[in-house]
Nucleic acid binder design. Structure first.
Lengths: 128, 128
DNA sequence: GTATACCCTTACGTTAAGGTCAATATGTTT
DNA sequence: AAACATATTGACCTTAACGTAAGGGTATAC
């Protein structure tokens, strides 16, 4: 398959695909005219990558996962460890964002939102 | 105050402070030796900025908030609108992350995490 | 007179792509 | 064969908020 066909199939841009190749996550063959050609193996890898990205893994992490994907001697504990770490960081992000949400909610609630300058939000940010 | 003193006081790096100045959010005076000098007004602005950053506002948003902070003719509804928009985007981020968390949790649970290659996480990412 | 603790500017690196470009390549009309 | 439309290529620019390093000035203490 050519790059545009895959990009449509996987709903990602051609630019993204080239980027993944540039940083060595995936690869492709070249035809005589220098066009990229993706065989089934490469398409499957790309599919894997897209799915992993959707699960929140960074490209670095995806790279690692693909190596495991391709390694028949992998240990599932290794894969699980990566997923657990990601889960941990996602949990932290959620906690942090919830804290922000709480503070912001409270401030928005306290602010009259009228045409006068007195504003508890500004006051809170400015307080000594 | 000099830049290092403030950075220690506000627990941010000197690089961050210079950056804020570079992009025109804050400003400072210069002494004869070209050192930055921050008077009380500038320190207060920086404090405001640091607090706003902690609440998750981008530097662009902080810039806007500081303009309102300094504008005695502001309307509190303007400030409230900015905070409400931020709140909305934070809520969306939380929802998205929770979805990821759910998927990952399930995968981690299903994976045996032993020394064998069979891994439901890999299978899930690779599935047709 | 040198050690150290500051301070300065310039400028490239980071994440994960998206945008834009000119230069080729291919395919279809005329 | 020439004109035109569409694909593809690599390369460089941009984003956010700094981090990091290089290379050099200044101030105080010992």
């Amino acid at each position: 398959m050519f790059i545009t066909a895959i990009s449509k199939k996987l709903k990602i841009t051609t630019r993204a695909i080239r980027h993944y190749e540039e940083i060595g996550i995936i690869n492709s063959k070249r035809l005589e005219n220098n066009y990229r050609y993706f065989d089934q193996v490469n398409v499957d890898k790309l599919k894997f990558l897209v799915r992993a990205r959707k699960l929140g893994f960074s490209l670095e992490e995806c790279k690692e996962l693909i190596l495991l994907f391709e390694n028949d001697n992998r240990r599932s504990e290794h894969v699980r460890e990566i997923a657990k770490n990601k889960l941990k960081s996602i949990k932290k992000q959620i906690t942090d964002l919830k804290d922000l949400e709480k503070s912001l909610k409270w401030l928005v609630l306290k602010c009259p939102g009228d045409n006068k300058p007195d504003c508890p939000i500004i006051d809170e940010l400015a307080k000594g």
